[in-house]
């Protein structure tokens, strides 16, 4: 856990006035606020840093303590005790910044209120915002839920564990890759009675070996033997909702496509509505021909030329 230079976080000098700090905070908060940077984890973390720096520097008492102990923040408590028991202990000038440059390091863990361990050590868990008693909304959480294509095909329930709590959610059929749902109040806890943040779940739909999905339509490839492709017939096709029989027209070309209406993916929150299934035929040329087969093909060749 490293010392954090709150002044450099806000980009102000150590002699900055309260007004300078307020201005710098507002400017940076507008730049990095999570609402203005959706799904940007870096901006989110920067916003927490800015908030923390403002929390300390905008409060005269916290700022004084922070300025007084500087890099010796780890011993702040001992210094305070010493200061109380003897006169002339640690004065204002004794352990200040002295013009040293420290680099802010927020890489350490943040507590559930979004404050660093450094902050907690210096001001304690209850040190945050208690003086002003301002309510702050909890942090929004972002999570990814990976589903395979078959799961996303039907409405089903899943239980998620968020911060030790089990949440049962219903996932409607047809959920799209990248779609985000919000679970209100399942984010970080609010501060000073502020409301909890929300949990945003992004669905990641995994690829399927035989089906590709685009919107509500599905795409697949069916292999046809040469004779069925030439003379027509029927093939059985495995779809996500079961087997279907597919009629093959005579003289079907390799690479040609057919559309099966309403055999695609269910439309999100539209009961009984589905996209289409596009089937591409891939004609397989027979191998290991017998001499007799070769002869018959030669006959065919002669007839065609």
């Amino acid at each position: 856990m490293a010392f954090i230079d709150y002044y450099s976080v806000l980009g102000v000098s150590k002699t900055a006035t309260t007004e300078d700090i307020k201005k710098a905070y507002r400017k940076l908060a507008r730049q990095y606020h999570p609402d203005l940077n959706p799904n940007d984890k870096q901006a989110h973390s920067r916003f927490q840093q800015i908030n923390e720096a403002n929390e300390v520097l905008s409060d005269p008492e916290k700022r004084k303590k922070y300025d007084q102990y500087g890099k010796d923040w780890q011993h702040a408590e001992q210094f305070e005790k010493a200061g109380q028991s003897s006169t002339g202990g640690f004065g204002q000038g004794g352990q200040g910044f002295g013009g040293q440059a420290w680099s802010g390091d927020f890489s350490g863990a943040m507590n559930e209120e979004g404050f660093s361990e450094f902050f907690e050590s210096l001001f304690g868990r209850t040190g945050s915002r208690s003086k002003r008693n301002v309510k702050f909304r909890g942090e929004d959480y972002n999570a990814e839920l990976h589903l395979n294509l078959v799961d996303a095909f039907t409405t089903h329930q899943q239980t998620l564990t968020v911060n030790g709590k089990n949440i049962r959610i219903t996932i409607p059929a047809g959920v799209q890759n990248g779609q985000v749902i919000r679970l209100k109040g399942h984010g970080g806890p609010g501060v000073n009675g502020g409301q909890n943040g929300d949990l945003y779940i992004t669905f990641i739909i995994l690829d399927h070996a035989h089906f590709k999905r685009m919107g509500d339509d599905l795409y697949t490839t069916v292999e046809l033997d040469l004779y069925t492709a030439l003379l027509g017939g029927e093939v059985t096709l495995d779809t996500l909702s079961g087997k279907i029989k597919l009629k093959v027209q005579p003289e079907t070309q390799s690479g040609s496509k057919t559309r099966l209406k309403d055999k695609g993916f269910p439309m999100y929150k539209k009961e009984n509505e589905k996209g289409d299934l596009y089937v591409t035929f891939n004609v397989k040329i027979p191998t290991h021909l017998t001499e007799q087969q070769k002869e018959l093909f030669r006959e065919l060749q002669k007839l065609s030329s």
Binding site: N177, G178, D207, K212, R213, M214, G215, Y219, T221, T280
Partner: peptide, 14 residues
């Protein structure tokens, strides 16, 4: 962008 990525992925596979 997301739609185009999906489309590209589909064409790459097909």
């Amino acid at each position: 962008i997301h739609g185009l990525e999906e489309k590209l992925k589909l064409y790459e596979t097909l």
